[in-house]
């Protein structure tokens, strides 16, 4: 390839990337302005420059509380999902039989069901016994995520030689001990994948939390952002500052774990 074409292509890719990234820039620029600056020119910086939106938005979003609600719900759900699905997948990969195949097909089958097709009965079921809070949200997240996680773990456990199990059994370890100390640590890359996929999904989820924990003191970040957005109607500088606050933790985490996140996302899609 000629040098001039190469430079031209590089330039073109640069433009595309800039264009793709511009929505992030525009949000940050306008979060740093007053109402007037946004009105004058939302596309770039104006003389109107301020940091005060962040403070106002932080307080209005009750950010500390929504952040920790989101964090607690995500961490609790991910831990339960990982343990429950790893245990089940281990048993499935080691014991062949009708029961194992039934569970495997149950997982594959339930993955087909869109959440919108079960949300009404699910809500009325939990509503009837008055059990709509952060705990039940964790239970629901688990139920909705174990199927895919089991299938992911199942593939990983199949790759772990059974001679490991046998050696441990000869040494007198019970299956539970073998699982916890030998087999589960052997699939830690897959554990990383399961954790990342579920954490991303649950942290960003809006629909389910809006039905289950839509009350004072239990708001997650997406929930609070939605109601805050309604309240700040036409006060874009505050809404955008809130957006920046909500997005920054995820972006930082992503930049730290970039490679792992991208591998996990690919694995979750292809398997």
């Amino acid at each position: 390839m000629k040098k001039s074409t190469k430079i031209l292509l590089g330039f073109l890719f640069g433009i595309i990337a800039l264009f793709w990234f511009y929505p992030f820039i525009i949000v940050i620029i306008n979060a740093l302005k007053g109402k007037r600056g946004i009105f004058q020119n939302p596309l770039w910086f104006t003389r109107d420059f301020t940091f005060s939106n962040f403070k106002t938005a932080y307080q209005a979003l009750d950010f500390t509380s929504s952040f920790f609600n989101s964090l607690a719900i995500t961490v609790a759900s991910v831990i339960v999902i990982t343990l429950v699905s790893a245990a089940a997948a281990y048993a499935l990969s080691r014991v062949k039989g009708p029961f194992s195949s039934i569970l495997y097909y149950l997982c594959a089958g339930t993955m087909l069901i869109p959440f919108q097709s079960i949300m009404i009965p699910l809500l009325s079921l939990f509503g009837k016994v008055n059990f709509l809070n952060r705990t039940s949200l964790v239970i629901m997240n688990t139920g909705l995520s174990v199927s895919l996680s089991i299938i992911l773990f199942y593939g990983a456990f199949q790759g772990v030689s059974k001679t490991l199990d046998e050696a441990a059994a000869l040494d007198g370890a019970y299956p539970f001990k073998t699982f916890v100390y030998i087999i589960f640590p052997a699939v830690s890359p897959m554990t990383g994948t399961v954790v990342i996929l579920n954490a991303m999904k649950i942290w960003n989820d809006y629909l389910l939390p809006s039905l289950v924990v839509n009350k004072d003191g239990m708001y997650t970040i997406p929930l609070k952002m939605y109601s805050f957005f309604g309240e700040t109607n036409s006060q874009w500088q505050l809404a955008l500052a809130g957006l920046v606050l909500s997005v920054v933790p995820i972006i930082i985490l992503f930049l730290l774990l970039q490679k792992q996140v991208m591998t996990s996302v690919t694995e979750g899609a292809i398997k």
Partner: peptide, 18 residues
Amino acid sequence: AFILPAVFFILLIIVIPF
């Protein structure tokens, strides 16, 4: 003991509501 927790969650949250 290994598989029942998973079965419980899938039945309670997906199969029964479905």
